[in-house]
Amino acid sequence: MANEIVLITNSIRRLRFFAGEMTQQELADRTGVTRQTIVAIENGKYFPSLELAFRIAHTFSVQLSDVFIYNPENDPVLIKLMAKKNKK
């Protein structure tokens, strides 16, 4: 999916690696969700609630922005707003 716009990416796989190769099941158990949900988040198929996002960051003892990275240059809403502003 080369043309897919990636608005929010995450570093969960990398963080799991640095947490002693924590398994997806272990992370799921520590954040109170199913392993399938962790898989979906890790693959960027599901964006968690703010509460779960904070819980994941807390599990790895890092800031939220270290887990989830927002890419404003790919945000269609911002792009639209900027275009509107430039028109004026």
């Binding site: 109170g32 969700v33 199913t34 392993r35 399938q36 949900t37």
Partner: peptide, 9 residues
């Protein structure tokens, strides 16, 4: 079977 229903479910 998973015994929890999370936010995604």
């Amino acid at each position: 079977m998973p015994d929890i229903t999370d936010e995604r479910d």
